[in-house]
Amino acid sequence: MAQAAEIVQVFQPKDYKSDLKPIWCAGCGDFGVLNALYKAMAACNLDPNNTVVVSGIGCSSRLPGFVSTYGFHGVHGRALPIATGIKLARPELNVIVVGGDGDGYSIGAGHLPHCARRNPDITYLIMNNNVYGLTKGQVSPTSTIPLISLQSKQDPKRWKTTPYGSTEDPIDPIVQAIAHDISFVARGFSYKPNQLADLLTQGIRHKGFALIDAFSPCPTFNQDQTDEFYKERTYDVPLDHDPTNKLKAFELALSDEGFPIGLIYKKERKVSVQDELAFLRESAVPQSLDQMFAHFMS
């Protein structure tokens, strides 16, 4: 008995499936993303008991219900603060954040640069379908048909809340992420699930804040940015790309040749908030309640 080796349980992708069936439409890109996530969690051998999947609100944010880990389905746009709180309270937990482009780049956009500044060791997976799906077809911050001007008389994309065309330019999530200095920035595509699983695996293993923006087409409300659209316009990040070179990362992200899929930017040795706070706690001189009161006695 004394010699018994510690048994390391090995998890399979199916171990992360919950009993709930996804509520997504047939043909939704999120199915591919979910399967990639199961694979990545298995590749990292995450213990479901020690893993929390956090989300906001939207079609993709229902994902925590479809995994067997702990989950936190919060309010719209606030997944990052909640996930940060979990990680800071319990640094030993694996924390994965999931959500859509509206959740992350519109209502929750204000949290992104600050999460980048803190660089908590969490992984943020955005299922980007360039449309608001749960509310049935409104313009999103990444709705990508560029508009020159309503006055140009071009035929602009007409979303339900912008029946005469959107007057706002889309956000480029990858360029923005590099600018925020997020320490791991990658782009995936739900129709390249193995590659996406690999990127998620790298992101989970990355020590710091990792953002993976995955194109995840909406077959119901977006007839423009379809799986075909992205299949034609995506290409693998060139093998000689150096993701640690920020200027090259910008160059790749800004290229108009289509959408590079893969790891685009990575910053090693960036300070991470949960480590800094742990250092503060460990280096502080412990104090009793009485000692705290003593400062105010006279």
């Binding site: 936190f72 606030r78 204000g110």
Partner: peptide, 16 residues
């Protein structure tokens, strides 16, 4: 970065 995030972090921490 704002009060929403502040309470968000607190809820995450309490959940944990």
């Amino acid at each position: 970065e704002d009060e929403i995030s502040a309470l968000g972090m607190c809820l995450g921490s309490s959940y944990a």
